[in-house]
Amino acid sequence: MDQLVLEAEPRTIKGKQVNQLRRQGLVPAVVYGKATAPIPVQVPRRPLELVLSKAGESTLISLRVADRAEPLTVLVRDQQRDALTQVITHVDFYAVVMTETIRVRIPLVLEGEPPVLQKFQGVLLQQKEEVEVECLPKDLVPHIAVDVSTLQTFDDSIYVKDLVLPAGIQVLDDPEELVATVSPVAEEVVEAEAAPAEPGEVEVIKKGKKEEEQAEAEE
């Protein structure tokens, strides 16, 4: 995927006055990093929403600030939204240094079909949604694929140690942590309804009762 590009302008309005920007369709943001002092910026809402819909925490963005000669390579570190409308209200961008490793969380995406589900009824369960990794910015990927075709039986599982990682990426999470497994579906046991008595059987019961009553009367 091509690197995402976003245009921004320096921001002079701060504090509660930033609501003026929001009414104009602009979103206040800040850029910071290990080698970058905090830079207040403002970004048009619609282009920002489009980029955020494509960018995860591990997606590099080329941020072009109007008063800077070179674009900044950034990651989305935090975003705030209105609790009711879910409209974006603020964004934090982290400026990376391309020659230094960073730590980010990368989503795990299950791919394929477990062979066990072709023979038996069951449910594929994803126990872990993402992993924390360390790598150079150039080695970042949008997600890590998890091949579930290795789940041949209900006893098979996929752990962090089983992940096939792209070059240059090191996972920091516990290697024994469970990622995915298949759980069997319990079959419902339907109790058979008691069959109604046959007419002959009912008659025998009634007849037997009459005979008992007659015997008691004769005594």
Rank of each mutant, 00 (worst) to 15 (best):
V109Q: 14
L125K: 08
L52P: 05
V74G: 01
K14T: 13
R23E: 11
P40W: 08
D82S: 02
L26N: 09
P40H: 09
L6W: 05
R23K: 14
Y94C: 05
Y94Q: 07
T36A: 03
I13Q: 06
R81T: 10
K54L: 13
R45S: 07
E70R: 11
V97Q: 15
A83Y: 04
L63H: 01
V31H: 10
L26D: 07
V116E: 11
R68Y: 14
D67A: 02
A69Y: 03
I102F: 14
A37W: 05
T85R: 06
V76N: 04
V51N: 00
L63T: 00
T73H: 03
F93W: 15
R11T: 05
V131G: 04
P115L: 08
V18D: 06
V31T: 08
R23W: 06
A66R: 06
E113T: 11
R105V: 14
Q121G: 10
Q79E: 12
R105P: 13
T73Q: 10
V116L: 11
V76R: 00
G33E: 08
D82C: 02
A83K: 09
V104D: 07
G33S: 10
K54D: 04
V27T: 12
V91K: 01
E57G: 15
M98G: 07
L108H: 08
L117H: 14
V51G: 00
T89S: 12
R77V: 00
H90W: 05
S58Q: 04
Q118A: 15
T85P: 03
G112T: 07
I13N: 06
N19I: 07
G25L: 08
V51I: 05
L72F: 08
L125S: 12
L6N: 02
L84M: 11
P115F: 12
P38C: 07
L60R: 09
P38Q: 11
Q121V: 02
V97N: 14
L50C: 00
G112K: 10
V74W: 02
E7C: 01
E129Q: 13
S62G: 03
K54C: 06
A55S: 10
R64L: 01
E70M: 03
Y94R: 04
K128C: 12
T89C: 05
T12W: 09
K16Q: 12
P10D: 10
L26P: 10
T59E: 09
G112F: 07
L75A: 03
L60A: 06
K119C: 05
E130M: 12
A95R: 03
I106D: 11
R105S: 15
L6E: 01
A55E: 03
L84Q: 10
F120A: 15
I106C: 12
G112A: 08
L52A: 01
V96R: 02
Q80T: 02
V96W: 04
P28F: 10
A29E: 12
K34N: 12
E113Y: 15
R22W: 11
